[in-house]
């Protein structure tokens, strides 16, 4: 009986709080029919926003992957002074609210910030453009790859890498042939999380993007713009794109959980 009540309550809570809003997105997007939806998606400004979002994400991704793998490797395989500090620093972005994060970047890299002012005479502007979007996106997604790769490295241990060392492999060969295949699943999920978050970041990006129509509007910003312009179909149509992306993320997570390597016995 308790079991039944608890399950029912849980389903009710999740249904009302989580599932219903998602259904509402699709309902509103298609409220004026499929043609209106199509027209909204194909709106030049929306397409430009999608393009910018994809470009920014493709720039953030390699940054984060290289950093995440490098940091996970150093932390998992070596003991050095400041190892714990590094771990904490990487986790900081989780604790910082998006607007505060955006403000931080503006205060240092903006035209009035110490670093921004230094670069200004050379005509280098970091904020209110694609660079700014990429930088804050790198901040908000900072721990994602590292967090997924580190535990995998911990679980696999260093034996295979040491074996490769005794067989004469150099650093790159060890990474390419031994480490990378071992961390591939964790890395893949880290990439998925980074992508989803980078594409969807709103608060931090809205501080540093500069909101120039058709130029520095990412998809979430474009959604806000259209929503405030009373273009509900446009906003919700664009939202379905990001919602689909979120659902794909969840499916991938499920797939990786199910088919990814379990903590298999040591070979």
């Amino acid at each position: 009986m308790t079991r039944f009540i608890l399950i029912a309550l849980s389903l009710l809570f999740l249904g009302l709080m989580v599932i219903l809003p998602v259904i509402a997105i699709f309902h509103r997007a298609f409220a004026d029919g499929f043609d209106a939806y199509r027209a909204a998606i194909l709106d030049p400004e929306t397409l430009a926003a999608i393009r910018l979002t994809v470009i920014a994400t493709l720039l953030v991704l390699p940054l984060n992957v290289i950093f995440g793998v490098a940091a996970a490797w150093a932390i998992a395989r070596f003991r050095f002074v400041g190892r714990r500090v590094l771990l904490i620093l990487i986790e900081i972005p989780f604790a910082v609210s998006p607007i505060v994060a955006g403000l931080c970047f503006l205060l240092i890299y903006g035209a009035y910030g110490p670093v921004g002012a230094l670069l200004e005479p050379y005509g280098v502007q970091l904020m209110f453009n694609l660079t700014g979007i990429v930088l804050v996106s790198a901040f908000v997604t900072c721990p994602f790859v590292m967090r997924e790769v580190l535990p995998v490295l911990m679980v696999t241990g260093e034996d295979e890498e040491l074996a490769a060392v005794t067989l004469g492999a150099n650093g790159w060969q060890i990474f390419r042939h031994v480490v990378l295949p071992n961390i591939s699943w964790g890395l893949a999920y880290g990439v998925v999380l980074t992508m989803a978050r980078a594409m969807g970041e709103f608060g931090a990006v809205s501080v540093v993007a500069g909101a120039i129509r058709g130029q520095t509007m990412t998809l979430p910003l474009q959604i806000e713009l259209m929503y405030n312009d009373y273009n509900a179909t446009g906003a919700f149509a664009a939202a379905t794109v990001l919602t689909a992306l979120a659902l794909v993320t969840l499916v991938l997570r499920g797939v990786l959980n199910r088919f990814g390597p379990k903590k298999e016995a040591h070979a």
Partner: peptide, 26 residues
């Protein structure tokens, strides 16, 4: 095992530019 200086170097560069500097800006 190789890669400590490379891994640590990349990490410190990234964390400095992306996390430490912005926070210190505030």
């Amino acid at each position: 095992l190789p890669g400590l200086s490379l891994g640590l170097g990349i990490s410190i560069l990234f964390v400095t530019l992306i996390v430490l500097l912005p926070i210190s800006g505030l």
